[in-house]
Design a protein around this nucleic acid. Structure first.
Ligand SMILES: [Mn+2]
Ligand SMILES: [Mn+2]
Ligand SMILES: [Mn+2]
Ligand SMILES: [Mn+2]
Lengths: 221, 221
DNA sequence: CGGAATTTTTAGATTAACCTAAATTTTTAT
DNA sequence: ATAAAAATTTAGGTTAATCTAAAAATTCCG
């Protein structure tokens, strides 16, 4: 398998993200804006990427990422998101301060490193922003996120994201010990005020208000 | 503070290592050989580095690293060695397979990342190869390593390196749980065969033969 | 529709980090 | 001391990734 340069990886990732919203054709200007480069530079790079077979491209008609390109992009995204989990879960960074470091770490080349990191982090399925982490084959969970408050008694779910990302709410979560990746078991729900009794990580039970459970995004198996 | 490119960091690190052996002048050819580049490329880069003030240089007379240059080199070395500790202690790599990955990781820019990593690793003083890790100010332990078997009863020491690095010995250490960074307390020494009773990490005591303690390099406080 | 606006590409430069080949300086050794 | 050998620098190129300015294609709209 051929290797891509850092710049090529960044372009490919941008193209992947811009086309992931269902859109087929990705425009030169959109790529330039996302990467903070000039359209002329994008034209140059696109030609190079199409020669390498990771995008197809008809002049003036925009680019399409190929299957090979998608695989390459997803591999970079996998690395990015795993490093973000590492920074937040192991080095105590806040989820809003890890992106720039992950932008650098995502280019480190070693698949053994990444599989070991994945294992060390206990195979997380979502990054600290709630985005799914592709597996080694580039497949990621399409399991839709649901709001914790909507689940019935007895369900087990994994916390993957928060709706409210304000400092006050995050601080509250810090104190309860709830964090991305926590396994939540719904023990009881009170009709009176909508609060629920949950068990976190098969460990401790606590009561959370409806206001809290409305802001927790989870996935069920 | 100005930033150096990856290539500049690699040159500076090579120059630092080549002059660390007490030698003052570092030769163009020596740098070229170490970095697997051509002497002509080294000449180019040296001019650039001297303009940035990290080396001084008189044509045909070799280079000297400056204090500023030394500080920059030690910062890269600190990152390299901390990442090596991470790879070995946390991701279960073997000490002989981490160098190439650390060569990449050493260029990641974020001093907060490094201080968090240092903390996460519990402030190691030596890397998995027994080389000292500079602190944030670029100072590293010059505490000489001694052979464990030479220490008297009652001493506490930290395991920093092994003399015998063969698979058989390393395998033995794996099984005993002894590893770089372990705190070793000498509980007793047997005159009969030179074996010693040690306590590892204030946790479990064990007996090791003289053949083993002869191959363990430690530092005392 | 057909010109104006927008988007995209091309042309021509620049910078960093390399290279080879040739020139120059220093060192070594008769 | 001087010629040969070795080390080093310079000259002149290349490639990757960027840029500005200008040309060309596409899209928009009165
Ligand atoms: Mn990110
Ligand atoms: Mn993310
Ligand atoms: Mn190393
Ligand atoms: Mn090392």
């Amino acid at each position: 398998m051929f290797e891509l340069s850092f710049a090529e990886e960044n372009y490919l990732k941008a193209i992947y993200h811009l086309s992931a919203d269902g859109k087929r054709q990705v425009n030169t200007n959109a790529i330039a804006e996302r990467l903070e480069t000039r359209p002329a530079s994008v034209s140059d790079m696109i030609r190079k990427l199409s020669e390498k077979g990771v995008v197809t491209y008809v002049k003036y008609q925009g680019v399409n990422i190929t299957e090979v390109g998608k695989k390459k992009a997803l591999w970079v995204i996998r690395k990015h998101r795993l490093w973000e989990v590492f920074l937040v879960n192991k080095l105590n960074f806040h989820w809003d301060e890890v992106h720039d470091i992950a932008e650098q770490l995502e280019h480190i080349r070693s698949s053994l490193l990444i599989s070991r990191l994945d294992e060390f982090l206990e195979f997380p399925k979502f990054d600290p922003h709630g985005d799914p982490i592709p597996n080694a084959e580039g497949i990621m969970s399409s399991n839709p996120m649901t709001i914790l408050s909507e689940l019935p008694i007895g369900k087990t779910a994994e916390l993957v994201s928060m709706k409210d990302t304000g400092a006050v709410f995050l601080n509250y979560l810090d104190r309860t010990g709830l964090k991305i990746g926590s396994k939540i078991n719904i023990v009881d729900k009170m009709e009176f005020d909508g609060s629920m009794e949950i068990m976190v990580d098969q460990d401790k039970t606590m009561s959370i208000s409806k206001q809290v459970s409305d802001n927790l995004l989870v996935i069920t198996e």
